[in-house]
Each structure stands twice: as structure tokens, then as C-alpha cells.
Deep mutational scan, measured.
Amino acid sequence: SYYEILDVPRSASADDIKKAYRRKALQWHPDKNPDNKEFAEKKFKEVAEAYEVLSDKHKREIYDR
């Protein structure tokens, strides 16, 4: 789930989600993982997609249904 990707509970606040996104984006940024760039790019995209949905109140409500 998007919550698992960002490592936050379903009850996470918008601020918690933003902090988790920043932490995970740094962790999986391809430039930070030169030895495993392809895998890092995949993870980085997953993190971005999760944040896009969970950071938008309307999209998150739909996702949580």
C-alpha cells in the first residue's frame, strides 16, 4: 500500500506524510544509489506516486475507500 511505501500508519497526518516522503525520497534518490540506480529509480517513483495520492486530501479519501 502507499502507506507501507512511505512507512506511515493510515492515521498519519499530512505533516507526517510530508516528512516520510522527504525521508524516503532522499533514501531512494537515484543519485544517492549509484550502484543500484535502476532499482532506486523504481523505488523513487513508487515513493513519489504514494506521496502524490496521500498528500492530496481528495485523492487520499478515494484511496482509503
Rank of each mutant, 00 (worst) to 15 (best):
S1C: 10
S1M: 08
Y2L: 10
Y3H: 01
Y3L: 01
Y3T: 00
E4A: 12
E4L: 10
E4T: 11
E4W: 09
I5E: 04
I5G: 00
I5P: 01
L6E: 00
D7F: 04
D7M: 06
V8D: 00
V8N: 00
P9Q: 10
P9K: 08
R10H: 11
S11P: 03
S11C: 15
S11W: 15
S11D: 15
A12T: 02
A12D: 01
A12R: 00
A12S: 07
A12C: 09
S13M: 05
A14L: 13
A14S: 13
D15F: 10
D15K: 11
D16P: 01
D16A: 09
D16M: 12
D16Q: 13
I17T: 01
I17G: 00
I17S: 00
K18P: 01
K18M: 15
K18Y: 14
K19Q: 12
K19N: 12
K19W: 08
A20E: 02
Y21H: 05
Y21A: 11
Y21F: 14
Y21G: 03
R22N: 15
R22S: 12
R22K: 14
K24C: 08
K24Q: 09
K24F: 06
A25M: 12
A25R: 15
L26H: 09
L26R: 09
L26E: 15
L26T: 10
L26P: 03
L26V: 07
Q27E: 11
Q27I: 13
Q27M: 08
W28V: 03
W28F: 08
W28L: 06
H29V: 05
H29S: 13
H29Y: 06
P30W: 04
P30T: 06
P30E: 06
P30A: 08
P30D: 05
P30F: 04
P30S: 06
D31F: 06
D31H: 07
D31C: 10
D31A: 08
K32F: 14
K32V: 11
K32N: 15
P34N: 09
P34R: 12
P34C: 10
D35Q: 11
K37M: 11
K37T: 10
K37S: 10
K37H: 09
K37V: 13
E38Q: 12
E38S: 11
E38P: 09
E38C: 08
F39Y: 14
F39I: 12
F39R: 07
A40W: 06
A40K: 03
E41M: 14
E41Y: 09
E41K: 12
E41Q: 13
K42M: 11
K42C: 12
K42L: 12
K43E: 03
K43A: 07
F44L: 14
F44Q: 06
F44D: 03
K45T: 08
K45N: 14
K45W: 07
K45F: 09
E46C: 09
E46Q: 11
E46R: 05
V47M: 05
A48H: 12
A48P: 01
A48R: 13
E49F: 07
E49W: 06
E49S: 07
E49K: 13
A50S: 03
A50F: 00
A50D: 01
A50I: 03
A50N: 00
A50E: 00
Y51F: 13
Y51P: 00
E52N: 11
E52W: 13
E52S: 13
E52M: 11
V53Q: 04
V53C: 10
V53F: 04
L54V: 02
L54T: 02
L54R: 00
L54C: 00
S55R: 11
S55I: 10
S55K: 09
D56Y: 02
D56R: 03
K57R: 11
K57Q: 14
K59D: 04
K59Y: 05
R60Y: 03
E61W: 08
E61T: 06
E61F: 07
I62Q: 13
I62Y: 12
Y63C: 03
Y63D: 03
Y63R: 02
D64W: 01
D64Q: 02
R65C: 12
R65T: 12
